[in-house]
């Protein structure tokens, strides 16, 4: 089932320069939502308890964030590049190496905090993913502008969009990842902080984005320096997500 959505995303990606692209993204999002709902009903638990499920959910959250941003800030053209990331995530999720069957929930995950902690965190990371793309686009268009070339996007618009995305993503990430995670850890493991590799790396990610906001709001940094921090932040988030799982073992062994 997931493969169909994967291909529908590929289609959208090609067409998303136009209005049709946006509508196709919307159809993709709705079908993906239905797929997640069916999976939840079928398995009886939240659709993010292993790597495959959480990748699929992260893609969904990214597309959701994208739809919101496109609607609010009228920046349709950047959508194509964001969908590239979504396609990449779905491709990894669909690879034969990922176990796809829904397995019963291990005791540690049987809590409503699973819903709160994972969904809010991944939604925040969805916004970071879009900010990553807009920051990359900023760097490209800014370099082009300096050489006197025409660009599709106005660099200053991209810069302020990146800021707004992080301004939405950061509170979500703080609430879902940090605060909900601490409360859940306190209930399940007996301590709000265990210096687990995933905890440490998400704290690093959190610090990078906090640095972004501080340098921007307090010190007035903009443009290239901000874009670099936003890119670094998303790379840290990616390492928290993939690197910690495959390179280091810890308490967060499920996702």
């Amino acid at each position: 089932m997931a493969t169909i959505f994967y291909f529908s995303f590929l289609f959208k990606q090609k067409l998303s320069l136009s209005r049709i692209g946006t509508n196709l993204t919307l159809i993709g999002l709705i079908s993906h939502t239905l797929a997640l709902v069916f999976r939840t009903i079928e398995s009886g638990h939240a659709p993010f308890t292993n790597m495959y499920e959480s990748l699929s959910f992260l893609s969904w959250a990214t597309v959701l964030a994208l739809v919101i941003v496109e609607k609010k800030y009228q920046l349709r053209a950047a959508g194509a590049y964001v969908l590239l990331i979504v396609v990449a995530l779905m491709a990894i999720a669909s690879s034969p190496l990922m176990p796809k069957e829904a397995t019963p929930l291990v005791p540690a995950l049987q809590s409503y905090w699973l819903w709160l902690h994972v969904s809010v965190t991944l939604l925040g990371e969805g916004f970071f993913a879009i900010a990553f793309i807009t920051s990359l686009l900023y760097l490209i268009s800014e370099a082009k502008t300096r050489q006197g070339e025409e660009t599709t996007f106005s660099p200053s618009k991209l810069d302020s969009l990146s800021y707004r995305l992080i301004a939405i993503g950061f509170p979500l990430f703080t609430l879902g990842g940090l605060i909900f995670g601490m409360i859940w850890a306190y209930r399940a493991w007996g301590s709000y902080w265990s210096w687990d590799p995933k905890e440490v790396w998400s704290l690093i990610t959190w610090f990078v984005f906090a640095l972004y906001l501080h340098t921007r709001l307090v010190m007035g940094w903009q443009g290239r320096r901000s874009a670099f921090i936003a890119i670094l932040g998303f790379l840290a988030a990616l390492f928290t997500y993939f690197g910690v799982n495959y390179l280091i073992s810890g308490l967060h062994s499920y996702v």
């Binding site: 301004a167 950061f170 509170p171 703080t174 940090l178 605060i179 601490m182 709000y192 906001l213 709001l217």
Partner: peptide, 22 residues
């Protein structure tokens, strides 16, 4: 861990601070 309440208070301040800042 009697200090945990301070951590929760810190979380609330963190949330309030973020809200105020934005």
């Amino acid at each position: 861990d009697p200090g945990t309440n301070f951590i929760w208070a810190g979380c609330i301040f963190l949330g309030l601070g973020l809200f105020l800042a934005f």
